[in-house]
Computed example of a mutant assay.
Amino acid sequence: MKDIPIAKITRADVVVWHTAIESQFPDTTTNANGYNRLRAAFSEALERDLIEANPVLTREAGTAVAKEKELPTDEEIATIVEQFPAQLKLEAVLCLHHGLRIGEMLALRREGVTIIRENGTAEVHVNATLQRVVNSETRKTEMLRVEGPKTVAGRRTVPIFLHAGRRVHRAHGHPC
Results as ranks from 00 to 15, higher is better:
Lys2Gly: 15
Ile4Ala: 12
Ile4Leu: 15
Lys8His: 12
Arg11Cys: 07
Arg11Phe: 05
Ala12Met: 04
Ala12Trp: 12
Asp13Gly: 01
Asp13Cys: 04
Val16Tyr: 13
His18Cys: 05
His18Phe: 12
Ile21Phe: 05
Ser23Trp: 01
Ser23Asp: 12
Gln24Phe: 15
Gln24His: 08
Phe25Trp: 13
Asp27Leu: 12
Asp27Ser: 15
Thr28Phe: 08
Thr28Arg: 14
Thr28Lys: 13
Thr30Leu: 09
Thr30Arg: 10
Thr30Phe: 03
Asn31Leu: 03
Asn36Phe: 01
Phe42Cys: 07
Ser43Gly: 14
Glu44His: 09
Leu46Tyr: 11
Asp49Asn: 14
Leu50His: 07
Ile51Gly: 12
Ile51Gln: 08
Leu57Pro: 01
Thr58Trp: 01
Thr58Lys: 03
Arg59Gly: 03
Glu60Asp: 12
Gly62Tyr: 07
Gly62Thr: 07
Lys69Trp: 00
Glu70Gly: 00
Pro72Asp: 09
Pro72His: 11
Asp74Lys: 10
Glu75His: 08
Ala78His: 08
Thr79Lys: 13
Gln83Pro: 10
Pro85Arg: 14
Gln87Asp: 05
Gln87Gly: 09
Leu90Thr: 02
Glu91Thr: 11
Val93Gly: 02
Leu96Ser: 11
His97Arg: 12
His97Gly: 14
His98Gly: 04
Leu100Met: 00
Glu104Leu: 03
Met105Ala: 10
Leu106Phe: 06
Arg109Asn: 02
Arg110Met: 08
Glu111Ala: 15
Glu111Arg: 15
Glu111Ser: 15
Gly112Ser: 13
Val113Ala: 05
Thr114Asn: 11
Ile115Ser: 08
Ile116Trp: 11
Arg117Lys: 08
Glu118Tyr: 10
Ala122His: 02
Val124His: 00
Val126Gln: 00
Thr129Asp: 00
Gln131Arg: 08
Ser136Val: 09
Thr138Phe: 08
Thr138Tyr: 09
Thr141Met: 02
Glu142Gln: 02
Met143Pro: 01
Met143Thr: 08
Val146Asn: 11
Val146Met: 05
Glu147Ile: 07
Pro149Leu: 10
Pro149Asn: 07
Pro149Thr: 13
Lys150Thr: 09
Val152Gln: 11
Val152Met: 13
Val152Glu: 13
Val152Trp: 09
Ala153Cys: 04
Val158Thr: 01
Leu162Ser: 09
Leu162Glu: 14
Gly165Lys: 04
Gly165Ile: 04
Arg166Gly: 04
Arg167Phe: 14
Val168Gln: 02
Arg170His: 07
Ala171Cys: 04
Ala171Phe: 04
Ala171Gly: 07
His172Ser: 07
Pro175Cys: 05
